[in-house]
């Protein structure tokens, strides 16, 4: 078993476990915004790890190039998708969790602009 295989196995395990963490975060977090934050960031890391493990496993030029392109694509699109969902949730009026301190979005209804956390 070469060092490359070992590295690929470690990357694969890290990616899979990070994906599991993303799912646990989606299940356990208190509101939409924290759920979206946890799941989108963790799963981006997971996909990067899985694609890099793939590139290491095959080691061919075409596979490595496509895997790096896929990583770049994921890094470009995942924040956009999460941002779009977050904007939609704010527009729908989904409430923030009680412990949320900064709310920098403009309020949809008057008042509640400067709620102080007790």
């Amino acid at each position: 078993m070469s060092l490359r295989d070992l590295l690929a196995a470690a990357l694969l395990l890290a990616g899979v476990l990070t994906a599991l963490l993303a799912a646990i975060g989606l299940l356990r977090m208190p509101d939409v915004y924290t759920r979206m934050s946890a799941s989108s960031k963790a799963v981006t890391l997971a996909k990067m790890c899985v694609f890099l493990a793939l590139a290491l496993e095959f080691g061919a030029l075409g596979v490595t190039t496509r895997a790096l392109a896929a990583v770049a694509f994921v890094f470009l699109t995942a924040p956009l998708a999460a941002h779009a969902i977050g904007r939609a949730a704010v527009a729908l009026g989904v409430p923030f969790a009680p412990g949320t301190m900064p709310n920098e979005m403009p309020p949809r209804e008057p008042a509640s602009a400067e709620d102080a956390d007790p």
Binding site: G15, V16, A19, A22, A23, L26, V32, R35, M36, S39, S40, V43, A46, K47, V50, V74, A78, A81, A82, I85, A88, A89, L92, V94
Partner: peptide
Amino acid sequence: IADRVVALDLLGTLGIS
């Protein structure tokens, strides 16, 4: 429904993994 969209997004992303 926003929770469900987040869950659907994660389903698709996990499918990629």
